[in-house]
Design a protein around this nucleic acid. Sequence first.
DNA 1: CGACACATGTAACACGTTACATGATTTG
DNA 2: CAAATCATGTAACGTGTTACATGTGTCG
Lengths: 201, 201
Amino acid sequence: MSIRHGLLALLDQGPRYGYQLRIEFEARTGATWPLNVGQVYTTLGRLERDGLVAPHGEDEEGHLFYAVTDAGRAELRSWFETPVPRNSPPRDELAIKLAMAVTVPGVDVAAVVQSQRRHSMKALQDYTRLKGQALNGDTGRQDDLAWLLVLEQLIFQTEAEIRWLDHCETRLATYRPGSPSSEPAPSAERRSAGPKRRSQL
Amino acid sequence: MSIRHGLLALLDQGPRYGYQLRIEFEARTGATWPLNVGQVYTTLGRLERDGLVAPHGEDEEGHLFYAVTDAGRAELRSWFETPVPRNSPPRDELAIKLAMAVTVPGVDVAAVVQSQRRHSMKALQDYTRLKGQALNGDTGRQDDLAWLLVLEQLIFQTEAEIRWLDHCETRLATYRPGSPSSEPAPSAERRSAGPKRRSQL
DNA sequence: CGACACATGTAACACGTTACATGATTTG
DNA sequence: CAAATCATGTAACGTGTTACATGTGTCG
């Protein structure tokens, strides 16, 4: 439901045509989530089917415009007002993988954690580099702010993931079958490399 | 692809039947991601279609067992070896929403952030409470460890989200159209309530 | 007896995603 | 001229998800 609403929000600025929407969408979310053009049209079709947008005539140059309907505006308002549910978040593949790795015998959990950690660490570096670039090419436009915020969300998220992975290691070291875990002492959780406490903002 | 692999992993412990899989799955991921029983059967069907599992006879009591095939075991090994891609993570609805809120005129961004913050904060409290319970009822079984790790991932993630939301507020206060942002001073990012630095593990 | 857990399944749909087809226009 | 960008669309598929149908056994 994110693309639907994203496009709807863009259309709220005024009538747009498909190709344009893709460009504006990517200007805000950057190269992180490339949006297949085809999907814009399919989504536009579904939005029209649901009465949230409607065709809005043609350009001199043949561009097919769409505009938000009243229902669409209502839907949009409701989207902005209602928080994204975090009490029942989407299944996270990594969490499931770890949960399974810990449970089924014959899996080298430590290896899984390490492998993921290396990968996430790499991703974090990429994001940080991108952020540097974003801060450089910043023109002060709202698009740039949006793109920056998205990037920073990815950074925060990835840092949290890495911390969690480290935490898993200590848990694995502490946890023994048969000995119910009391909270392990809040030790320095080892490995001083990697992101320290809050991000280097 | 997470449920597929999750079930595959469970089947790696030995032949199981549908209903059983659901129970074992939920024992690990807790009430967080309730798994509709129907979905177990559809997924099982698709796994069989792809040759990763195969029917494995019937019980005296009529239970229909499935077992992993060699291809299934290979697939599973590959799943555990390959990190979950974090360079192109799944679209996050919140990120998109904020990106749009910042860009389209007439949206009270601060209100959106606040509303989400309240919600995420509430979710965090729920998770923390659940974790307390989990630590109590802990029997030292691997299931409990898995469930605990999943919970903690949710906690880490939610904390990161809240920190990011706070960060957005400061960004919004600093960022002015026309004045390209230099990194705002790493001030204490206001609001001393909420999760402080690393979690209260 | 009625409610509830156990147990298996199907039908239908939504969304996201990719691959493909097609053509106009611009640009090196 | 060839390649790239602009522009619109369709067909097909995959997973996840819900709602429904159905039946057995058990427990109060």
